[in-house]
Amino acid sequence: MSLHECSIQEIADEVQNGTLLGVPADYSGVPMAFVRELIRQGKSELDLFCLPQSTLQADMLIGAGCVRSVETAAVTLGEYGQAPCFTRFVQEGRLNVKDSTCPALHAALQATERAVPFSPLRGLIGSDLVKHRPDWQVISNPFSDQEDPVILIPAVSPDVTVIHAQKADKNGNVWIGRRKEVATLIHASKRNFVTVEEIVDTDFYEDEVLAAGVLPGFYIEAIAVAKDGAWPLALSDRYPIDEAHLKDYATRAKTEEGFATYLAENLAA
């Protein structure tokens, strides 16, 4: 076991154009400092896979022209309103959205976690989502005597996933607490990087309470320290969402010009 420390720039260097990037939900540690670095480096043609939805991460990457497609259950700023860039790009026909539903996104990654080609799932039959997803298949339950259609969601493996977490230990293990959906993302991704608020000089496995919320280091290629790395989004127990910033973003990003000035100010910072 060992800790491999790197910089945010080095993580962004590993994201090639055309990468399928795993995107965590807003309550699970969103690596916003890394997102700004991706935009600084001018990435393009990224495909986003959200588990199961995204707020500012997807919206900023879309607005900055980094994104080719997004597979998600929703993109929204929640209480701060619609995701302005996402909404504008879809309405202008500039973004390929693979509309999904939360449990199907989980199912796709869970199949990869088990190294099986697909996961069956209830629901969905009769939803228009299915009409637009030729990659999903409805079969008849082979174990039933009666007609019982079941949908199959093929396995998905993101090329790279990056998350932000509170802390890593001296051996490169990362503490995610109860935010286990990021564990699903990381288990299913080919390569993983984590940004953290701090690296502590202990081993999380020596503490039974901490150990329950640990993501083992063997899934993770490298870790970068990024203080306030989720800002302006919240990080559980560390800092709340920056309300004023989100309100300002929600207003300014409604236009191309407003978004451009927002980016210019916030990438320089």
């Binding site: 199961p52 939805q53 995701a83 879809v90 449990p103």
Partner: peptide, 15 residues
């Protein structure tokens, strides 16, 4: 998919 007014998405509704 040529939505005139786009909203966030279907969330978990389809299950």
């Amino acid at each position: 998919p040529n939505t005139q007014r786009r909203f966030p998405g279907s969330f978990g509704s389809a299950l």
